[in-house]
Design a protein around this nucleic acid. Structure first.
Lengths: 159, 159
DNA sequence: AGATTGTTGAAAAACGGTTTCAATTTGACT
DNA sequence: AGTCAAATTGAAACCGTTTTTCAACAATCT
């Protein structure tokens, strides 16, 4: 049965994904599909951790193991579909790697973990330059500003 | 016996450290002293993780627990003596916080973890700006470029 | 359909970091 | 120097995140 109204992840996108995976000897599975769907439905620049993806899928009635999620995330980072963010707080976050250069960066509250995105185009240039200068193959630049957010500024720090 | 050639951590430095700690109700202990000594003897811009500090001290015949090291690192970061770096790879690194603004950033190989430092003065300005714009109190900026180093570029990536 | 190879989920393990707690050390004050 | 309260320590237990192991399962190839 075929529909004229493609779902959020259109069958076109799906075929592309499948081809992409198969080219490298990987397979398109329901789990990988669902995980990527979540990222595609996210507001621009938003990011998730493994546990949040697990919760989202489980709540939606999917059965998936947490290890599958970790494996899929690594795979997609290696394939360039996702970008891994390291904003301290002891866990990794992931966001959709838009085709364009990475121009948005992060302002992180070290107390509560709140994250503010901001655009800044001047970083990419510096990243490209430095990578080249040392013979490195550039993957990704991240500019992270650690600070204390307005809400947390009132509170004391503990020793 | 007094010498005209003060050791790496001079007694002057030591007194300063003691005063600094005591001001905030903390105490100068042998362990904290030794940890800071390691950082002071490190080449400019070099960084270490907790486990490496533990190894260094243990090999030097000191007895110190790993938890003491973590506690001391946090304390020194809070006091502004050290800077905490988050260069992916799932653990935190620390470097001496030089009195000047933080103008050196990192190029990291995502395969082998090799780190290259580089100077770049334009970042700080952006960090200050963005923190201000969102009402955050700036602590620290980190620009990190993720890439593959020349050595690792030959090798395959695993799925 | 059958063979081959990639993928999965559950459970166990590894890992970095934190907390607990009794024993010890430090700094302040006689 | 001696006493005392408070800070600090190390060992062990613990925690949350991520990785590994392994037997069962599913996608692709012939």
């Amino acid at each position: 049965m075929s529909s004229n109204f493609p779902p959020a992840t259109s069958s076109r996108n799906l075929e592309q994904l499948k081809t992409l995976l198969n080219q490298e000897g990987f397979r398109l599975t329901r789990q990988r599909q669902k995980i990527l769907e979540i990222f595609r439905s996210l507001p621009e620049g938003d990011h998730l951790g493994a546990e949040e993806i697990y919760q989202t899928l489980t709540n939606a009635g999917e059965t998936i193991g947490i290890s599958t999620i970790y494996r899929a995330l690594h795979l997609m980072v290696n394939m360039g579909l996702l970008r891994e963010l390291d904003l301290a707080e002891g866990r990794k976050l992931y966001e959709l790697a838009t085709p364009s250069v990475h121009e948005h960066h992060h302002l992180v509250c070290v107390q509560c973990g709140a994250v503010q995105e901001f655009e800044e185009t001047s970083m990419a240039t510096v990243g490209v330059q430095e990578a080249e200068r040392h013979g490195f193959a550039l993957l990704n630049c991240q500019f992270t500003v650690y600070a204390v957010c307005p809400t947390c500024q009132g509170q004391l720090r503990s020793p």
